[in-house]
């Protein structure tokens, strides 16, 4: 194989790996943000339900 091909393969690997890794962490970030938002809503809902239940039980 010609030298120049090794050079192109080398540069492709460096930038390819970096790009794939960046893509992975960006997707992780988005997925986690979505999950956090969803679970926060769930937690708020539970808290409201709990406080409502507490008030009912107090009455």
């Amino acid at each position: 194989m010609d030298d120049i091909n090794y050079m192109y393969i080398g540069y492709s690997i460096i930038w390819g790996l970096t790009f794939v890794y960046l893509l992975k962490i960006t997707m992780d970030q988005k997925k986690l943000a979505r999950e956090i938002k969803m679970l926060k809503e769930v937690a708020d809902g539970r808290r409201k339900t709990d406080s409502g239940t507490d008030r009912t039980s107090e009455n």
Binding site: L22, T26, Q29, A33, I36, R46, D50
Partner: peptide
């Protein structure tokens, strides 16, 4: 730049675990 992003992701993961634990406690 990647380190700051990755640390953000890991902090979010920690936050997610905390929320899950909170929901578990509420349940």
């Amino acid at each position: 730049a990647i380190l700051l992003t990755k640390m953000d992701v890991e902090n979010m993961r920690e936050e997610l675990e905390e929320i899950k634990q909170e929901i578990g406690d509420l349940d």
